[in-house]
Design a protein around this nucleic acid. Structure first.
Length: 239
DNA sequence: ACATTAATTATGT
DNA sequence: ACATAATTAATGT
């Protein structure tokens, strides 16, 4: 479900973008121009920013929150592909000459995003040095991560895949707290099972076991990794 | 070494 | 109360 009314926030400060890699190389004036053309919008947790197959009308910069990217499988199940942290661009279909969004973008938590009409994309990358370069960087990074996961899926057992998925989550979206690192947004056993090509039951069993072993703590969509090193060992097929 | 099925128990609105 | 999450055991491939 897509949310209807775009609420424009009162004031868009340039400091919103200056420290973000895609805009870091730009002058204050350039950032001002970009911001003046942007629409800012708050999103509640659990809503779709855009959906798979919809005409790709806008592209986005996530200022706060996390985006969960899903795609529909052939059997009709939603599959979680990955999470996007704040500070990254998403929905940049135009960069790949796509007419429609290849996946659904759901908010994992309350968040704030900027967006621009997709028609601005080509002009932006032509006009603003570094935007295209940084986009290549993030896309390349995501691709190499995908490659890693293909290797995992074809060569590793379930425990290792789940352990690797958790490691990625805490590395990319982890927040340090007393006694460990928590995944910064609510995540279910089902979400993890979708990312690792297994069932929620197997994930549940693994997490229960690891909780007993002191690797992590987990209550209700919240996971705290207490011992990342142990998890790293579990992720490596040693024997 | 896993999935599936089903029953049961939390937990959040 | 009702829906969603999570656990656990039993059974199957």
């Amino acid at each position: 479900m897509t949310e209807a009314p775009p609420k424009v926030l009162p004031r868009l400060d340039e400091s919103l973008l200056t420290h973000l890699p895609p805009f870091a190389a730009l002058s204050g004036r350039q950032i001002r121009d970009i911001l003046d053309q942007a629409t800012s919008r708050r999103y509640r947790a659990g809503v779709a920013v855009f959906e798979e197959g919809m005409p790709a009308e806008r592209f986005y910069m996530l200022l706060d929150g996390y985006i969960r990217v899903n795609r529909m499988s052939a059997t009709g199940d939603q599959v979680t592909l990955h999470y996007i942290p704040s500070g990254e661009m998403f929905g940049i279909a135009r960069a790949f000459r796509l007419e429609s969004y290849p996946a659904t973008a759901m908010t994992a938590v309350d968040g704030i995003g900027l967006s621009w009409p997709m028609g601005f994309w080509d002009g932006f990358v032509a006009q603003y040095e570094g935007l295209g370069v940084e986009t290549f960087r993030t896309v390349g990074h995501r691709l190499s991560e995908k490659n890693d996961r293909i290797i995992e899926l074809t060569s590793q057992q379930v425990q290792q895949r789940v352990a690797n998925a958790l490691l990625r989550l805490i590395n990319q979206t982890g927040r340090k707290v007393e006694g460990g690192i928590v995944i910064d947004f609510p995540i279910t056993r089902r979400d993890i099972s979708e990312m690792t090509a297994t069932t929620l039951h197997t994930v549940s069993r693994l997490l229960s076991k690891w909780e007993k072993d002191g690797v992590l703590e987990s209550v209700r969509r919240q996971i705290k990794v207490r011992d990342p090193h142990l998890l790293t060992e579990l992720a490596n097929p040693e024997a």
